[in-house]
């Protein structure tokens, strides 16, 4: 099975947002791979390896793709260090992109690469748009399984049973390959990915994606890394433009109350909330 994982680098979400000239000031920002995309790389690895080994299933391949500025190599290579096999880096600045442009480029790369599955984060934690996976599936005419909390492959790896976190519970949807899957937080819990190769008893290390090993980091430097230009894909001007960014007003300072009876009294009389 061949899996394509689109990834985005994002400013570290623990940094405080500052503005410059009406937009987010990213000068001096530190960057990370979007958490959900890192989980997507982890998901792809779990789908294509024997977790007890770990050994990769013969003939399997993971290609990471990113549309990002020239200097995003470190974040992209981080995914190779985790275990992805090769990278395609389409050099582009944020100002040149919107979700439809990203989808157009990804669709062209997918047409050439012909992956069985696209696995990606459900949203980027900077823009919080949650659009690209669904749009990509729509554009390709592929089925989609969004907000995946679990994935199970069938014996022939021809379809995926995806547990999706929806309002009111967990929906199980089966999609044939090729398909687009977007992953939610709980996809990286112990038994969330079942590929029929990793023993069912195998519990992955728990929270989050794996950290690259030293060996993985060394290997990543030699893995194929292809750089492309946005112009290669005939993308026009963005149709979604950010006109201005503002920061929300801070919440008025609250008060500490001494005991429960004071709290209830204040909620009833002052806040009129009870």
């Amino acid at each position: 099975m061949k899996i394509l994982v689109p990834i985005k680098r994002v400013p570290d979400p623990t940094q405080k947002a500052k503005l410059k000239d009406g937009h987010i000031d990213l000068a001096g920002a530190s960057w990370i791979v979007n958490t959900f995309d890192e989980y997507a790389v982890e998901t792809a690895l779990r789908l294509l390896e024997n977790g007890e080994g770990p050994t990769r299933i013969a003939g399997s391949e993971i290609v990471v793709v990113s549309l990002a500025p020239e200097d995003a190599g470190k974040e992209i290579r981080n995914c190779l260090a985790m275990g992805a096999d090769r990278a395609i880096h389409v050099v582009a600045s944020d100002a040149e992109l919107d979700s439809l442009a990203v989808v157009k480029v990804l669709a062209a790369i997918i047409a050439a690469e012909k992956p069985d599955v696209v696995v990606m984060g459900k949203q980027a934690v900077d823009g919080d748009a949650n659009q690209v996976g669904q749009m990509l599936a729509g554009k390709l005419g592929w089925p989609q399984a969004t907000f995946a909390a679990s994935i199970e492959t069938d014996a022939a790896a021809k379809s995926l049973l995806v547990g999706r976190e929806v309002d009111g519970g967990v929906e199980f949807k089966r999609v044939p390959v090729p398909a687009v899957v977007t992953v939610d937080l709980r996809i990286v819990s112990a038994h969330a990915v079942k590929n029929g190769v990793t023993p069912a008893t195998h519990a992955y290390g728990g929270d989050g994606a794996r950290l690259p090993s030293l060996k993985g980091i060394m290997a990543s430097k030699k893995k194929p890394y292809e750089q492309k230009k946005l112009a290669d894909y005939g993308v026009g001007a963005p149709v979604i433009k950010e006109t201005v960014v503002t920061l929300p007003p801070p919440r008025a300072a609250g008060q500490l109350v001494a005991d429960v009876s004071t709290l209830v009294k204040k909620l009833a009389d002052e806040a009129k909330a009870l």
Binding site: D98, S99, L100, V103, D128, A129, N130, Q131, V132, G133, Q134, M135, L136, A137, G138, K139, Q144, T146, F147, R164, E165, V166, D167, V239, I240
Partner: peptide, 22 residues
């Protein structure tokens, strides 16, 4: 909602429409 977020971007792709989420 979970359903709206799943559906509308796919509709946007079919319409070549720009989208604003949430």
């Amino acid at each position: 909602t979970a359903l709206g977020k799943d559906l509308i971007p796919r509709v946007a792709a079919l319409l070549d429409a720009g989208m604003a989420s949430d």
